[in-house]
Write a protein that binds this DNA or RNA. Sequence first.
DNA 1: CGATTCCCCTGATAGC
DNA 2: TGCTATCAGGGGAATC
Length: 280
Amino acid sequence: MPELPEVETIRLSLQRYLIGKVIKHIDVREKKQFIGDQRKLIGKKITALTRKGKVLSIKIGDSFLNIHLKLTGQLLFSAHSDHAVFPREIPRANSKTLPAKTTHIILYFDDGSALFFNDLRKFGWMRLLNRPDETSAVDLLSQDFTLDLFKNSLMKSRKPIKNLLLEQDKFAGIGNIYANDALWQARIHPLKSASTLSDVEVGELFKAIRLIIGEALKRHGSSDEFYVTPENKPGDYQNHFKVYHREGLPCPRCGTKIKRIKHSGRSSFFCPRCQKLPHS
DNA sequence: CGATTCCCCTGATAGC
DNA sequence: TGCTATCAGGGGAATC
């Protein structure tokens, strides 16, 4: 699922292709996934790509096309829209060519290139606004994401730390993969109440988030299920998961079998030896 | 305030 | 074989 490292990888890639291109035509095949008046974009030029948390914003003319990929969204670029063929199968699109069955929106540019939005489960969206999509939260790669801010947020909540990490209106960008791996890195149990973390633990978790997100970025994200880069290349972090999707496999640090629990409707993975609760 | 549940959607998988 | 039930999951809304 696309989290900060995946969306940032996509942004850096698309930035190279899209800046300066002019929108010729937009094909919206799944109406509910495009919010706004697409006609506003015709003939307008792309001037910037930004990202906050998991939301990508493409500046087109005076408007911002905001994109959330949710669980299964893919953005693929092709220099030749009339024969968009990739050398390898696109994961879960069951095809090397575009458009695929899962292609729901296509942006055509004036030079014959195109951007394809695939999304099997149709949870993702493109939303046209006159500003980047608003979230008051601090992005994890921002200078404003400081230890002080992090600590203040944690001390105000008695929720399980894992739940807090996933709240996009507090810290934008972390999803299930990196929340699990960061907690493992910091040796903190996912159910531990946020406000009960010691100063040392808060510091370790702060470092762990930056370390794990940084490693994932270097590896161009995690191609666990659907995610690929706009060139249809996989990331590499899935080969280096610490605990995520590794139930029953050995902890990379101590060899203990990794456990999986469900809470608040989501799965958490952790090492029962490295990440202990006070009373267990 | 927080915790839980449902919903959106589809393919994979399990059970009969 | 083929049908049906269940599940995964980001995030928003409704409910307790």
